[in-house]
Design a protein around this nucleic acid. Sequence first.
DNA 1: GAATTCATTTCGGAATCTTTACGATATTGT
DNA 2: ACAATATCGTAAAGATTCCGAAATGAATTC
Lengths: 230, 230
Amino acid sequence: MTDTKILVIDDDPEYTEQAKTLLGNEGYAVKIASNGLDGMEFFRMFEPDLVLLEVLLPQKDGWQLCREIREQSQTPIIITSTRGEVFDKVLGLELGADDYMVKPIDPKELSARIKAVLRRTRLSAQPGSSDVVKFDNMEVSLQKFELRLGGKAIDVPPKELELLYFLASNSNRVYTRDQLLDKVWGFDYLGDSRTVDVHVKRLREKLQGASDKWSLKTVWGVGYKFEVIG
Amino acid sequence: MTDTKILVIDDDPEYTEQAKTLLGNEGYAVKIASNGLDGMEFFRMFEPDLVLLEVLLPQKDGWQLCREIREQSQTPIIITSTRGEVFDKVLGLELGADDYMVKPIDPKELSARIKAVLRRTRLSAQPGSSDVVKFDNMEVSLQKFELRLGGKAIDVPPKELELLYFLASNSNRVYTRDQLLDKVWGFDYLGDSRTVDVHVKRLREKLQGASDKWSLKTVWGVGYKFEVIG
DNA sequence: GAATTCATTTCGGAATCTTTACGATATTGT
DNA sequence: ACAATATCGTAAAGATTCCGAAATGAATTC
């Protein structure tokens, strides 16, 4: 049923065997790496849908690995650790991990968390995201985190940039406010959908008169879209 | 405006009363069940759009109920519990609940979470069902929510676009005004069928002279059709 | 040419969007 | 760690757009 691939990076053979059996039974394809270097290598080859990553690793520790994975992909990561330090948790989440678990791990909890994380990240999986979006004289880069209009860099706050990036990278398609809250703000955002309007307005101020080949359009009764002419 | 139904399953009368008042004020239709068996029964009869489910219930506990509901429907479920155990949360999510809240519940948070969950679960029913209808130089897209004539995008209000989309995607077939009200406005629409005439007129203004291969025709004494020549 | 059906126009109310202002929150710089 | 700054999100008022009812005029049928 599921074709989902999970990469487990941990040097405790007993634990990894257990994990492999458990997750295998749940229909996942499981791969084991027992040190940091292998971990990174396998990550590239295996292209997992989720990484289960131990903090304490030979050759290259989990933090480092987490950072490297994040630099090149949005693949969800669950950090595991024998220590239960709050510090670990905070650091892990800061580095872009999606969840955090303390060993020893209850098998039931593990599979539940994996499911939950996959569910979350799949919701926000965006079609066609290649980091930089260009239209005519406009360029939006998430990596550089900037907006360029005719070669000139414009200061744009994070939320506005993310919103513009999302709309532009899915141009001509309408999104409801709720969809935008999901895609840009996150599935667990609690708040009013009018918020989108305000951000659109602030964006429009900055984009005003920049080009006649594209625009941020309102679709009455539906939502917004980034429209490209021609 | 909202016709959304919420089923609250909880045996604490004080809590359910509070919830009923709060959610009622927000425009939801609320039904209360005070034990597990009623809960399942009401779920079937009432067909709610969302279930607010307490874990600790007489007769049949929340976990069991959650599982049963999931077996037969995708209706979103928010689990509530007095304990704040991580275990509960994880188990809840594993059983297919959509969110989890710890009592005592802040009314503001409750309504925010309900909104968020509904938002998430409704995404599949949003515009984006990549339906496009094409005839010659005309293209109607619900995804882009636009009408294109010869490559040029034309602004069309929602109702008009939906009407055109419906007629065009069932081309050459006649529909009475009442049928159109049913299909486009909704089966529960109460109103004058002359309304259709007005919308047809407005559409014709926009479509005027666009092509001779198709047209929005009146069928005298019957209704309208989108006629395609050749 | 009378009766019926359709087209067109107008207009107020409703729904939706825009804009503004302000407090809360997060970020930055020192 | 603190203050200064920037961003974010909410609420409310203002502007806009759309919808649908009614009324009148035109077309079609018999």
